[in-house]
Amino acid sequence: MAESSTSYIRLVQHLIEACLCFNLSKEKCIEALDKHANIMPVITSTVWKELEKENKEFFHAYNKAQEDKILEMETLQKIQKKLSEASISDSK
């Protein structure tokens, strides 16, 4: 049974690593593995947390990049909104 559990955890780890290659956030990874691999979110979350403990520097940089990506998207949305509002006021 322990060998089976170990291989299952390795599978989840491998799938998480694939999610990381696609720059998925922890939440999106949990969602994807639940939907496409039928892996319970609590399992993915637990394995992710263990990977974070073992690879602190990597995950610090990864999480920072994720935050930067979110801020960049929010900034772009604000700019697009301003441009759209300017375009509407110019056409009046």
Rank of each mutant, 00 (worst) to 15 (best):
A2L: 15
L71K: 14
C19Y: 01
C21K: 14
E52D: 05
M73W: 01
A61R: 05
V47E: 04
Q80W: 00
K35V: 13
F59P: 02
S7Q: 15
E52L: 05
E27I: 07
S89Y: 01
I16Q: 01
L51K: 04
A37N: 12
L11K: 13
F59L: 04
N55Y: 02
N38C: 13
I39Y: 03
I39N: 01
V12T: 08
N38H: 09
T6D: 12
E72S: 13
I30N: 07
T6A: 12
Y8R: 13
I16E: 04
I30Q: 08
Q80D: 09
H36F: 13
L76Q: 15
A65C: 08
C21F: 06
T75H: 12
K64G: 01
Q13Y: 03
Y62V: 08
K26T: 02
S4M: 09
P41E: 02
I9K: 11
Q66S: 09
A86F: 10
S7R: 15
Q80R: 11
E72M: 04
S25A: 04
K82Q: 10
E54V: 05
M1R: 07
C19H: 03
K92M: 03
K64Y: 08
M1P: 02
A86C: 08
E52S: 05
L15I: 06
E31I: 06
A32Y: 09
L76V: 03
E72P: 00
L20T: 01
Q13V: 08
P41R: 04
K82S: 03
I43T: 05
Q13S: 12
H60G: 01
S4F: 10
E50Q: 11
V12C: 05
I88T: 06
K53W: 01
T46E: 09
I70A: 11
T44S: 05
